[in-house]
Design a protein around this nucleic acid. Structure first.
Lengths: 346, 346
DNA sequence: ATGAAAGCGCTAACAT
DNA sequence: ATGTTAGCGCTTTCAT
C-alpha cells in the first residue's frame, strides 16, 4: 500500500543510542536524572534518524497532544482573521498546533466535531460559534473537557468564556451620536439570536432612553447576514417619512455594506447621514470616509481565549468565569454633528 | 490529576452488549459477518453509553492519521475563505481533519511547519503560500511526503500542483477592454514574485501586442498588498497627462480598493474609467457597480487540491502533474464601451 | 459468525 | 541513573 519509509519510532532511537525507551522518553520530555553524556547521545540519535514523536500515541497514553481544536462558523471576514491571528500567535508561543473545524452553520456538524474532539483528538476546544448548541456544550462539561466560548456576551457560569463590553460599547456609540445632536438614530443589528447583538441593541435603547428619546420601532432593524437583505433594510429606512440622520450598525461589516448602499443612493456620509459601526475591523480605518466605530479588542480576545484554555488544561478544575474585555469609542470621519453637517472634511 | 469521567471505550460497549471487542469493532467498521441481532444489540449499547470511538487509537493502529495539514499565508479574504470551503468540504467527505498553519509571511515558520507536519503529524500537506520555499519543498520531496501546491501557475514537474489559466484569463480580460475600444489600459498587478501575477501580466501584454497597442510602462504598476500603497498607484495613474480609460487589476481585492479610491476622487465607474478584476470573489457581485472580472474557480480548486492529495496518499508514487482549471470572463457593470461611456446603467 | 490476543508508539509507574 | 513493563483504545490476524 504505502511505499514510503516508516517513520522512526522511539524504539529505533533507543536502539541507535544503545539505551532503553524510557531513557529516550526522558530526554524527550526533558526529565531530570539523565546523564548528560547519554542525553547527548540520544539527541544525536534522534537527529540522525529524523525522529519526531507521534502525537497520537503520546496523547493516547494520557499525555497531552499539543493540539487544540478551533471550531468556527465561517472564515473570510477580517474580523475572524484578526481573531485567529490572536489565537494563532498565542498558541505558537507554547508550541501548540491548531485543528480547524469550520461548521458553516451546520448544527449537526458542530455536535459531531465537539464530541470527536473531546474524545481524544485535542487537549482543549475553542468555540467561535454565534449560537452554541446546548447538547454538545453539556457533553463537554460532563467530560470536564477544557473549552472556552469566544466572543459571547455573558457566561452562564458553567463554562469559561471571553467577550467584550457589548452593552457599554453600544451605549457609548449611541451617546456619541446623541451628543452630535442626532435624535433620529436608526440601528441595524446582527441576528438577535446572538447574545452579543442583543446586548448591543439593549445598550442602544438604554442610551436613547437615558436621554429622553423614545425608541422608534421603525428605526430598529434586524439584519440577516445577506447583502441583498441589508439593502432592503437601508432602503426602508431611506423611505421613511422622517429619515434617520444617523445609523448605528452593530457590526462593521454591515456598516461597510451600508456605506456602499447609501452611496448607490447618492446619500453622502456623514453629510446626509452619519454612520457608526462596531468592532473596528482593519478595513474600518481604510475605507472612505474612515469609519467611526467602537473598538473591539479582537486580537486580544483571541489571545485571552488561549490563555484561559491553557490554564484549564493545566488545571481542569478551575471555577468557570467570564472574562470581559473593554471596548472604546474610536472617532473617525463617518459621523458628524447634525448642525454643521455640511462642513465636513473632504 | 484529571478528575473527569472517563469516556466509554470499546471494552465498555463490549461488556454492555455481552460480546467481544472484535465484534464491536466489526459493527463499528460496518463489516460483514455480524448477526443482525447482535449488531443491533451492540448499536444500542453504543447509544446508551454515548460511545464515540477514539480517533487516536484508531489511527495509531491503522497507520494513517486522518489529518492533512493546510499551510496558508493568511486568512481574512473572501478568496481564502472560498478556497478553504472547497478544501474543507472535500475533506469532510472522506472524514479527514484539517490542521491549520498560518504563516503570516514568516518564512522560518513555513520551514518549521513543513518539516514537523511531514514527520508524522499529518498524512499530507496542502500549500497555499504565494512563494514556496525551496528548502522545505525539497525536504517534502525527499521524504516522498504527499503534498500539493495550490494556486500556482505552473509546476516544475517535481511536485503536484493545481492552478488556473492565469495567462489566458488576463488575455481575455484585456481583449474585452480592447473590444470596448479602450486603448489606454492600465494594469495593477499583485506582487510579481508570485508566478500567477506574472502570468497575468504576461497575458495582458500579449493581448495588447496582438492588437498592435504598445505597452506603456507608465500604465504598469506593481502593488504590494498595502492599501495606502494602492492609493498611491491609482493617484499616479490619475495624474498622468493622458489618463488611462480602463484599469485591470490582477485581483478583485485590489479592484475593490481601486473602486473606493476612484470614488474618493469623484471618478465614476464605468463612466469615467472602466474597471476589471480577476478572481470573482463573492464580494465582486455585491459591490456597486458590480465588478466585471475573470471568474476563477476557487472552490473547485480547493476540492481538486484535496482529491490530488488523497490520490497521493493512496499511492505516493504517482507522477507529479500540474492540474490547470479554466477561467472565464464574467461580464458585469464596472466596464463599459468607450464611445457611449456616459450612457451607463444606473 | 464470533472471540482471543498481538501490537500501534508512547508514558509512567515500578524495579534495579 | 537507567531499564522493564503494563497499559492507553483500537484494528486485525488467527483461531474456533
Amino acid at each position: 500500500m504505502r511505499t514510503n519509509h516508516k517513520a522512526a519510532t522511539i524504539i529505533d532511537v533507543a536502539k541507535a543510542a544503545g539505551v532503553s525507551v524510557s531513557t529516550v522518553s526522558r530526554v524527550l520530555n526533558n526529565y531530570q536524572h539523565v546523564r548528560p553524556t547519554l542525553r547527548l547521545r540520544v539527541q544525536e540519535a534522534m537527529n540522525s534518524l529524523g525522529y519526531v514523536p507521534n502525537r497520537q500515541a503520546r496523547r493516547l497514553v494520557g499525555g497531552k497532544s499539543g493540539v487544540v481544536g478551533l471550531m468556527i462558523h465561517a472564515l473570510g471576514t477580517e474580523y475572524i482573521a484578526e481573531l485567529i491571528r490572536g489565537i494563532d500567535e498565542a498558541l505558537g508561543l507554547v508550541d501548540y498546533d491548531m485543528m480547524l473545524y469550520t461548521t458553516h452553520r451546520h448544527k449537526e456538524k458542530e455536535d459531531f466535531y465537539a464530541r470527536s474532539i473531546a474524545s481524544g483528538l485535542a487537549d482543549g476546544l475553542l468555540l467561535v460559534v454565534p449560537t452554541i448548541g446546548e447538547s454538545y456544550l453539556d457533553a463537554l462539561r460532563e467530560a470536564n473537557f477544557p473549552h472556552v466560548m469566544v466572543d459571547v456576551d455573558n457566561s452562564d457560569g458553567k463554562s469559561w468564556s471571553v467577550g467584550v463590553s457589548n452593552w457599554k460599547g453600544a451605549y457609548e456609540a449611541t451617546r456619541y451620536l446623541l451628543a452630535l445632536n442626532h435624535r433620529r438614530i436608526a440601528i441595524i443589528t446582527d441576528q438577535l439570536e446572538m447574545g452579543t447583538s442583543n446586548a448591543r441593541l439593549a445598550g442602544y435603547k438604554a442610551a436613547l432612553e437615558d436621554s429622553g428619546v423614545v425608541v422608534d420601532p421603525e428605526l430598529v432593524k434586524e439584519n440577516n447576514y445577506m447583502f441583498p437583505y441589508t439593502r432592503k433594510l437601508v432602503e426602508a429606512l431611506l423611505d421613511l417619512p422622517e429619515r434617520p440622520t444617523a445609523i448605528f450598525t452593530t457590526g462593521d461589516m454591515a456598516a461597510l455594506q451600508v456605506m456602499e448602499i447609501l452611496r448607490s443612493h447618492h446619500v453622502r456620509i456623514p453629510d446626509d447621514i452619519s454612520l457608526i459601526g462596531f468592532d473596528d475591523i482593519p478595513q474600518a480605518s481604510s475605507v472612505y470616509p474612515r469609519l467611526t466605530t467602537i473598538h473591539h479588542p479582537i486580537y486580544e480576545m483571541g489571545q485571552t481565549a488561549v490563555q484561559i484554555l491553557l490554564a484549564q488544561i493545566d488545571n481542569p478544575d478551575l471555577q468557570p468565569q467570564h472574562v470581559q474585555l473593554e471596548t472604546r469609542l474610536e472617532i473617525r470621519e463617518s459621523s458628524a454633528s447634525l448642525e454643521n453637517n455640511s462642513a465636513t472634511i473632504l
